[in-house]
Design a protein around this nucleic acid. Sequence first.
RNA 1: GUGCCUCUAGCUCAAUUGGCAGAGCACUGGUCUGUGGAACCAGGGGUUACGGGUUCAAGCCCCGUGAGGCACCCCA
Length: 455
Amino acid sequence: MARTGDRPARTPQVLKGMRDLLPQQMVLRQHVIGTFRRVFERYGFEPIETPVLEYLDVLTGKYGEDEKLIYHFQDRGGREVGLRYDLTVPLARFVATHRHELVFPFKRYHIEPVFRADRPQRGRYRQFWQCDVDIVGTASMLADAEVIMVWIDALSAVNMPNFVVHINHRKLLQSMAQVAGVPEAQAATIHRAIDKLAKIGRDGVHAEMVNHGIPPEAADRVLDLVALEGEPAEVLAELRRRLAGNQLAEEGIADLENLFRYLGELNADPAHYQLDLSLARGLDYYTGPVFEAMVKEPNIGSLGGAGRYDHLIGMFLGEDIPATGASLGLERIIDVIQELHLLPQPRTVSEVLVTVFSDEGLEASLSLVSQLRAGEVNAEIYLGERRDLRRQVQYADRKGIPLVAFLGPDEIAAGTVNLRVMASGEQVTVPVSAAAETIDRLLKQERSGDGAAGQ
RNA sequence: GUGCCUCUAGCUCAAUUGGCAGAGCACUGGUCUGUGGAACCAGGGGUUACGGGUUCAAGCCCCGUGAGGCACCCCA
């Protein structure tokens, strides 16, 4: 850490919308990733990985408007390449590439970073991780129901309170536009406006539609449909009456009826999902049910987006394979966990610090630390050159290591070790042979007594 | 991508509006080599985000760049 006298070439700064993660942030992050992984695997989803870089034309033509946010450049061989914008389009390409190596219906999860050249804001980064589960090769609404169940379980597993999965159907949205007499080309405008219903209200949506050239009467007709609320079965029955004879509406309603029936049979908690006829979802590739996971507090946007995309794989294969899937935004979820203190937040992976009393005691300390590691305890030995115990205990305190093991002449002579619980100051002396076991017990006590409030 | 706001020590913020760049916490050393978060003493740390301009004089005014935030857009 000596000074070199050289001036740094540039201020050491990370790129807009990207961040470094410190060890104490990674502890929570990896815990959340591990939790999601376990939930995903409980449903039989299997992991895959794909490159962050794809041929640019793999990515283009799938997202609609958003396409301008794709990072792209030429590689050294002159290839036009792009950083993946999500994990769904790469999955579609993956399925088309490996079609004959996969067992269908194919279920995979995928937890990796994606990139969007968006203007950063709170909860909006240029590099962020998505946690995706998708089911490829079945058009059954059972697959969509499973995906929603995974979401509910995953968010519940990180103690997320009051989240709601909003559910709608692309075909329903399209049929509403048809019934209102809005031309196909303007359908997207309508959907975008409707999506803001909760935010700007009926009048706001009406004004926005009219602004975009939708006749006021058509806007009213659409809004009358969207405004329907209540029990899914009742709302769907009412829609069936009002949209009678419309092919798309029939298909969408039938899908949703099945979907809600399956959710009921899977015992999904009704507090965590609802029919929301105003939910639009921006991405072009959705063709069926669409979902969005929302929390009211804090105001951070959606935690995840999802839906069915029965024609996306066909864009690579020339033959459609139906698919549905869900995507959670890791950073937003972690932001909420931290803001609301939903999980305990240890600052380190270390479980115990083994102190070194003196040169003469070093051998005993090294022997203990190896023994603890063999017993699957995360144990570190103090590596500093100055060994006064005060300094060593302070090190444990600063790093947040929950336990400290003392081995002085007395303990060494007696074949014991003195274990100190940092949070309480309580100390116990046990035989070295019982150290690992005692540490396990003390850690369990700590974790249960600690509650979810964290340190 | 558009508009607006912000940027001073590791963190939170001062600096009498253009006149010597500071505090608290943190950090380092000591009191203190058998036990941390206390106290006391001492210390290190800043081209005031970066680059330029105006001025006798710039943290403060002007321009550009970078980064963060708010709203829009959109979305995870």
